[in-house]
Computed example of a mutant assay.
Amino acid sequence: MAAVAQHAIPFSRPATPGHVVNTVGFYGLGAMGYFMARNLANRRASEAGSALVVYNRSIAKSEQLLKELGADKVKIAQSAEQLVLECDVVFTSLASDAVVKSVYEGFAAALKQNNPTKNKILVEMSTIYPTLAGELDTLLSNIPHTHFVTCPVFGPPIAAETGNLICVLAGEYRSKKEIAHLLVPGVGKKAMDLGGNLEKAPTFKLIGNSMILGTLEILAEAFTLADKAGIGSAQAYELVKDMFPAPPFVNYGNKMVTDKFDGLTGFAIDGGLKDANHIRRLVTDLNSPMPVTDAAHAHMLTARAIHAEQKHSGEAAFEVLDWSALVAGARVAAGLPPFDNAGPAKVVKE
């Protein structure tokens, strides 16, 4: 495994003797969680010789991971209660705030009935509204030896697959040291410390996602203009690769130009709308307008509405849309087909 730059890990290795993490669990094997759990399982097996305990509401994903890695690296929990009671550290990567709250209420109920006798760290990695972090901390704070850390991550599924995520941590310092040591390297390439306020990490996650949404909106508008001008979005994409070779520009630009809007292999548009709604709520709460997010939100709604009608009529090319499909909103506003970039431009090159 390649060496990781020291600045990528803002914590020293946890001191020994001290809290020993014997068993690690992971709840939520979605598009991101599956790859994070797989990388964590591989690292735990190589360094600690112990299997990662996993749980997913659909057992098929757990069984898939077990089949891929083997019983020496993966153990399937039969319930969320078993997971949280058996493991010293539990990571959660879930789809929505409502699911996160429900899962942690279940964790709390199980732990109150069986008070831990040694340290236990619960790590929430989902994209949630910041105030929910405070609610979860209140929920867990009166349970002995139980610590809570927020740790959202930056990066698409391909970054999760290759272990190149950026992990953002907030919470009690010693717990953050333990979690950073588990995640970097292997799951993430870098850990960022946002301090002790648990709401800071999810806030920072929304700020980062606002930049990604802004990138998508800029690309959508520029590519649509290039198509209308008869230059073509493919030509504009070449400029993007030369002038703005950052991963979001290059990766999402490619999806737009080639109409690769499969949300099952990317970030589903429903998740994008959830994040956009969180960002819009945050900027409202803080009186800090962000009109690019409003535009991106409207274009995602347009794309989802068109896709829903196509599914109803049996004409949809994808079961789930990627959030890069927001380009459909800009296209239809300009009189172009929503999901077919290969169609004839309204203005033809000379």
Rank of each mutant, 00 (worst) to 15 (best):
K241P: 02
E86M: 10
L273C: 03
H307W: 01
N209E: 12
L94K: 07
A298P: 01
G163D: 06
F267Q: 10
V168K: 01
L182S: 06
I207K: 10
A80H: 04
T23N: 12
L65I: 15
A191Q: 08
L264D: 09
L301A: 03
L40G: 00
R43W: 01
A48G: 10
K255S: 07
M243S: 12
A296Q: 07
E105V: 04
I158C: 04
A229V: 13
D322G: 07
Y237M: 14
L326T: 07
T23M: 11
L132Y: 00
G195T: 15
G195V: 14
R281A: 13
E63F: 01
E315A: 08
P17R: 13
N39L: 02
A220E: 06
F154K: 07
M36Y: 02
P17C: 06
G49H: 05
E47F: 09
G214D: 11
H7Y: 11
T162C: 10
V84H: 03
K73W: 04
L225G: 03
A334Y: 02
T146D: 00
K189Y: 06
G271W: 10
S288Y: 15
G329Q: 02
D285P: 00
V100T: 06
F261N: 00
S46H: 06
A170V: 14
K255Y: 02
T150C: 11
Y252G: 02
A334V: 04
P338L: 00
G253L: 08
A236P: 03
G271E: 07
E315G: 00
H147I: 13
V84I: 11
E124L: 12
Q64W: 07
F223P: 04
L85I: 07
K311W: 01
G195D: 12
V168W: 01
G343D: 06
T92K: 01
E178F: 12
K255P: 02
L326M: 15
V84K: 01
E161G: 06
C167R: 00
G214N: 11
D88S: 07
L65F: 14
N22T: 14
L94D: 04
A60P: 01
E86R: 08
S141N: 11
T203Y: 14
F91P: 02
A222I: 13
G18Q: 13
L165F: 09
I59N: 04
F267Y: 11
S288F: 15
A303W: 01
